[in-house]
Design a protein around this nucleic acid. Structure first.
Lengths: 340, 340
DNA sequence: CTGAAAGCGCTTACAG
DNA sequence: CTGAAAGCGCTTACAG
C-alpha cells in the first residue's frame, strides 16, 4: 500500500500522512493518532527509498578496511567493526559491512553506493598515508573519517582518529625494565612503523640500547610468530614485544618448542589485547587498543561531518583530530627476568 | 548532477541515458560509449535511491541474531557473519550488520528498513523455534532464511539451513571411546539441546552409559568453563565435551588449577572450532561448524527466495532445507586415557 | 535505436 | 492545521 491509497483510506491528503510519519510540520495530535492507528491496522509503512530520494540522506555508513598489503579481516578488525556498528546504531545509523579481499580497490558495491548517494559517510581503517589519500581523493564528495596509527596530515574535509601507540608501548617497556629486562626484542607485523618507532622510542626513554635491539619479521600468522621467535633466541633476548597478539601467541608456542617456559624463561607481550587475551596460556600481557573509544570517536566525528554537509547551508567543518591513547594491560606472560 | 541535466549535456533523452547505465533495452553501442565517456568526465552517477524506488529491490540483505537468552555477538557469530558477508558480496548483495543487545526485539532500524522495502531479505540465526516463528511472523512479507541447529518445521516461505551437530559429535565420542575413555562429561552452553541430545545419542551408539553421564552447566564464559570443570571432577570423568570452544578453554584452565594436565590427565573437546582453536595450548580438539558452507547455503537460498518473490509473476518457492554436517577436528587436547 | 511522457512513492513550499 | 501541486531522480511501456 502506498501513501496515496492510504491517504484516501484515512480521508486526508498525502501531505498530512507524510507529516504524521515524519514528525515535521504542524499536525493535530488527534489526526496523527488516527493515522497511526489506521497504519498499524492496514500495514502501511512509508517506502524508505522514496523518503531517501527526497532527503538526500540514507543514515547508512560503511566501514572500509584499506591495507597496503594482504587484506586481513582478522580478529582485531572484526572486534573494531563490531564496536563501530554498535556506536553507529546508537546514533541511528545502519552499518554496511564492506568486506573485500582486494584491498587496493574499493568494492564495486561501495563505489556505486557512495557515488549514487547510497551512503552518508565512510569510516576508513588505513595503514598507509598514500592509501588513505587515494581513498579520500576517490570519495572526496563524501564525509570520511580515517582511523590510523599515525598523526597524518590529511585534507581538511576528513576526520582523523589517531591511535597513539606510544603511550601503551612506553608503559610495556617500562614494566619490562622494572622486571629486570634489558635485552628486549621486537617481532614485526604488517605496516607497523608506528609500533616499531614507539618501541625504539620507549627503549631510549628507559635508557636501553635501541640501536642494537634484536628484531625479526613476522609478519602475520601464528606460525610466523613461532619462526620469528626462533630467530630472536640466539640474540639472548629475555623479552619480546610482538606487533600483534596472534604473533605473540605464536612466539609463546615457539618458545615452548625450544624448551623455554613463558614467563619463567622469557617474557612475551602482544599488541591489540584481543578479547581472548585473558584466556590464553599463560594469559597474554598486551598493549590494549581501546576499540570502544575509537569507534565512538569515529562515529561522532563522522556524524558531525555528515550534519555539516547536509545542513541547510552546508558548512565547512573544522579539522577534526581525536587522539586515543593505548595502555598496557599486564598479565602473566610478563615476568621477572630469570636470575642465573 | 542529475539525469536531466546530464542528458541535455549528452544531447540525448533521459531514457537513453537510463538505458546506457541499466544495460536493459536497445541502445547503439556507439551511443553508450559516448555516454559513458561523458559521465566519467563530468562525474555523473545514477542516484541509487531513485533506481531502487523504481526497482522495488535494494540488493541489501541483513544478518540478524536472535537468541532466547543474553545476546552474544561472540567469536562464533562474528566469524559466521563475516562468511555471510563474503558469500553475499559474491552475489552482489551488500550486507547490513545488525547488532543489538536486545535480542527479543528486532532493532527499530531493521524493522523500518524491512517494512519500507529497504531490505531484500534477512538471514536469521536463531536458537529457539518459537523465537524464529515470531520473527518470521513479524517479517512475513520478506524472504527469510533461518540458520539453526535443528530440523524445525517452519512455514513454507522460509528457507532453513540446518546444522547437523550429531555427525561431528558422534565422531568426537567415537574417538574418545577409541582412546579408552568411558566416563565422559558434558558442559552445557546456552540453548544447546541439539548438542546435548547429540552427545547422549553418541554415547549410546558407542555402547556407553548415557543416563548417568556427568553434566554441568556453563553456560557462557571462560570462567563458567573453569567452574563447571571443577564440578565435574569428583565424578571421575576422564574426558569432557564442552558446548563451545570458550567453555573448553575455561575447562582446560580449570583442570590446570586442579593440577591436571591436558591431555595427559584429562581430555577436553570444544564445539565451534573457532579459527584460533589450533593456536591454544594445547591446541583444542573441536567439533567444526563449516561456516563457509553454511554461509554459502544461506545466501544461495535467500537469493532464490528473492528471485522468486521479485519474478514478473512471483512464484511460490518449494520448501528449502539444506543440512550441513559438522565434523570432528582432532587436536592435542584429546589424548589416550591415563593408565594407572 | 531513440524520445516524450507517465509513473515509482514520498516531501514540502505555498495557499488557505 | 490541512490540501493541491510541484518536485526528488530515475525507469519503462508506448510510439515512431
Amino acid at each position: 500500500m502506498d501513501i496515496k491509497k492510504f491517504s484516501v483510506l484515512a480521508d486526508v491528503s498525502t501531505a498530512t500522512v507524510s507529516r504524521a510519519f515524519s514528525g515535521r510540520g504542524r499536525i493535530k495530535e488527534e489526526t496523527r493518532q488516527r493515522i497511526f492507528a489506521l497504519a498499524a491496522e492496514h500495514g502501511y509503512t512509508p517506502n524508505i527509498h522514496a523518503q531517501r530520494l527526497n532527503a538526500r540522506r540514507t543514515d547508512i555508513i560503511a566501514v572500509y578496511y584499506s591495507f597496503s598489503t594482504a587484506a586481513i579481516f582478522d580478529y582485531y578488525n572484526m572486534e573494531l567493526a563490531q564496536e563501530i556498528a554498535k556506536a553507529a546504531a546508537a546514533r541511528d545509523y545502519t552499518t554496511n559491512l564492506e568486506l573485500t579481499q582486494k584491498t587496493a580497490e574499493p568494492s564495486l558495491g561501495l563505489q556505486r553506493a557512495a557515488a549514487g548517494g547510497g551512503l552518508d559517510g565512510i569510516i576508513l581503517v588505513a595503514d598507509s598515508r598514500s592509501g588513505a589519500l587515494a581513498f579520500l581523493e576517490r570519495f572526496k564528495t563524501l564525509p570520511v573519517v580515517v582511523i590510523a596509527n599515525h598523526d597524518w596530515d590529511l585534507p581538511e574535509a576528513a576526520g582523523l582518529v589517531r591511535i597513539h601507540q606510544d603511550s601503551g608501548i612506553a608503559e610495556a617497556i617500562a614494566q619490562l625494565k622494572n622486571a629486570g629486562h634489558t635485552r628486549i626484542g621486537f617481532i614485526h607485523g604488517l605496516a607497523d612503523t608506528a609500533k616499531h618507532d614507539a618501541f625504539l622510542h620507549a627503549l631510549r626513554a628507559e635508557g636501553l640500547d635501541a640501536d642494537s635491539a634484536p628484531t625479526a619479521s613476522g609478519p602475520l600468522s601464528f606460525e610466523d610468530g613461532e619462526r620469528a621467535l626462533a630467530e630472536l633466541l640466539p640474540t639472548g633476548v629475555t623479552a619480546v614485544l610482538c606487533s600483534t597478539d596472534i604473533l605473540a601467541l605464536g612466539a609463546i608456542s615457539g618458545a615452548d618448542k625450544h624448551g623455554l617456559r613463558v614467563p619463567k624463561d622469557i617474557s612475551i607481550i602482544g599488541i591489540d589485547n584481543l578479547s581472548f587475551a585473558p584466556f590464553t596460556r599463560p594469559p597474554l600481557a598486551s598493549v590494549g587498543i581501546p576499540r570502544t573509544e575509537i569507534a565512538a570517536a569515529a562515529v561522532e566525528q563522522l556524524h558531525q561531518l555528515i550534519e555539516d554537509a547536509t545542513a541547510p547551508v552546508p558548512r565547512a567543518s573544522a579539522q577534526l583530530i581525536h587522539t586515543i591513547n593505548t595502555r598496557f594491560i599486564p598479565r602473566a606472560s610478563l615476568g621477572p627476568v630469570l636470575q642465573r
